[in-house]
């Protein structure tokens, strides 16, 4: 009879209305500021620079090789190399970025910089509450604002951080083995002028 389809639809919405008091599955609203959705581990918003230890300047893993600057599709990373060197994550003296700006008003959070970075120096953060009314200052993050500790990285991406740490410790082990081997050959030759250590970086 006429109206039978509409009644079936109304029954459906009535069931949903009654169900919303009873079954949690039908009550999907998450009252954001008070109640939050469980953070999803693989989430990515904006990049950040990882540093080991406590001091962000010396512990920074980035060696300013500028691969991420070239590969970034919207071109929102700007790097300037430092003049002097400091030991990097594996302990080899490398350059470090004197200036590392990310313009989060352009960044499309596509994580290609993370994918192409050979030094595990840049990872994706999950912090998304960044709305601001300051156009020029608030949206251009410089080196200091970007740097976050490795512990923080373990906090937001535990499994990925563990894999990265394993790779780094293995790298350090290989580097130590190489330096000890170089030290032994160096000692044997003794009188010979030691060659300049191989240039690191790109």
């Amino acid at each position: 009879m006429l109206g039978e389809g509409i009644l079936k639809g109304l029954a459906e919405t009535a069931k949903n209305f009654a169900g919303s008091f009873v079954s949690a599955e039908r009550m999907t609203t998450v009252e954001y500021p008070e109640e939050r959705i469980a953070p999803i581990e693989a989430a990515r918003v904006f990049p950040f620079l990882v540093y080991d230890g406590t001091d962000w300047e010396s512990g920074m893993r980035c060696v300013a090789c500028q691969i991420c600057e070239k590969e970034c599709p919207p071109k929102c990373i700007y790097i300037e190399k430092s003049k002097d060197k400091k030991p990097d994550a594996i302990g080899k003296p490398q350059f470090y970025p004197a200036k590392f700006d990310v313009d989060i008003a352009v960044c499309m959070s596509c994580q290609i910089c993370v994918e192409v970075c050979p030094f595990e120096a840049i990872k994706m953060d999950t912090e998304f509450e960044l709305s601001t009314d300051d156009r020029f200052g608030g949206l251009l993050l410089d080196r200091e604002e970007l740097s976050k500790s490795n512990e923080y990285y373990h906090q937001i991406h535990p499994t990925e951080a563990a894999v990265v740490d394993a790779r780094l410790t293995e790298g350090r082990a290989k580097a130590d083995a190489k330096t000890t081997a170089a030290a032994i050959t160096g000692a044997i030759r003794g009188a010979e002028i030691p060659k300049r250590p191989a240039e690191g970086g790109d």
Binding site: Y32, P33, F46, I104, A105, F128, L130, S131, R135, L139
Partner: peptide, 19 residues
Amino acid sequence: VHIPGCPPRPEALIQAFMT
């Protein structure tokens, strides 16, 4: 109010409302 992100999460839009 500016909301960075591409696209910003729905919670970021609600946080922008609060700002």
